[in-house]
Design a protein around this nucleic acid. Structure first.
Lengths: 202, 202
DNA sequence: ACATTTTTTTGACATTTGTCAAAAGGATTC
DNA sequence: GAATCCTTTTGACAAATGTCAAAAAAATGT
């Protein structure tokens, strides 16, 4: 069956979700919403499709309202190592690369097929210059990223692997049920075999 | 010998350092500098004095022009675990707590005696509301924090302890020479004994 | 300069986690 | 639904790291 574009109202739906998301932590005027809206493009992403790739700059910021993304890189042995997950609704990009313009250190991969909104870095910079309210959203988003990183860092440092796993189960039950074990294992900093044994011993 | 306040021009010196630091990545108008200046207070910190303490909210952001800070928390066994270092010149706070208002998860400790500038959270919020240029500084600082966290996270996940240590030596030689080994060890996620043995084998 | 405290190193041993190889189990595609 | 691919589990063993106790070295306070 040939793929057909989703109806116009589905486009409006994800945009509505975007502004609802932003409204949780900031207020944008009608003008600002309009300005942001004009610079968004829609994109369909397939399962396993990349938003960012190692060693290439990433100059796109996306918003998604369903599915989730995995961050990973290749270690010294060429093995994939998962460093993070981001769940909808959320903004996603290879953050350091997007900010600095340097090549991305990580791969960012869609884990499910989904519809997303895309914003180019250059467009976002212009919006920052023209609309203080949007710059505020930028600040708040940066703060959220920083906070998430601090939490993850403390999770990794905090204690032994089995305690990290239990803690993850408590705090993010959604992880356990949707994400393949091998990815959770490397998120926890252990191998899939070790995680499997930990689960056997409850 | 009784402690005497530093002369007025030393106060001006650290303020000059602050604006020089900010100028590296943003531009503040005279008005904005003036507004920020008025809400800064000076404080002397002793070696090992705390800027933030576990389980207490931290509502101060400080700027220092010399020395460095250590971030640590207590693990399940009550042992100290070092999670980060910040070197002058830089802003420092218990970031998540400062942003969210929640109790700090970490301790933030001055590692040397130093003179700092203090800004209260409430004052900073007011500045954000009144001066878009200062809000921009806030955004850029948040981005820097997020980037530093991503780098640290990847360092931890990236490979075995000895490679992490070599990499740290390459990228931050200052760490090795100023910071006690035991703190570097827990920054790397290993015990002091393991680090000591690694160093023996070059 | 001395006494005290803190930091670093060392050894012996226990424990955790990784590695490799293979099988079992699930999911996906044609 | 058969074939294929991907994920998870298991076992045997190796390697890395932790733990505990003690000594050596360095830094600090008076």
């Amino acid at each position: 069956m040939q793929w057909t574009a989703p109806p116009r109202d589905q486009y409006k739906m994800i945009e509505a979700a975007l502004f609802e998301y932003i409204n949780q932590f900031a207020h944008l005027t009608e003008t600002e919403q309009q300005a942001m809206s004009e610079l968004l493009t829609r994109r369909r992403m397939a399962k396993k499709e990349m938003l960012a790739t190692e060693n290439r700059p990433c100059n796109e910021l996306i918003f998604t309202n369903n599915g989730y993304f995995r961050f990973y890189h290749h270690d010294a042995n060429g093995e994939e190592e998962t460093s993070d997950f981001y769940f909808a609704p959320t903004f996603i990009t290879s953050y350091t690369s997007f900010i600095t313009g340097e090549p991305s250190m990580v791969n960012v991969q869609a884990m499910e097929a989904m519809e997303v909104l895309v914003k180019k870095k250059v467009d976002l910079q212009n919006l920052y210059n023209q609309h203080p309210g949007i710059e505020r959203v930028g600040r708040l988003l940066a703060e959220m990223v920083a906070i998430a990183s601090e939490r993850h860092l403390l999770l990794l440092l905090n204690q032994t692997a089995d305690k990290r796993y239990k803690r993850l189960m408590d705090q993010h039950p959604q992880y356990i049920n949707t994400i393949p074990m091998q990815y959770i294992a490397s998120y926890l900093g252990i191998t899939r075999e070790t995680l499997s044994r930990m689960r056997r011993n409850l």
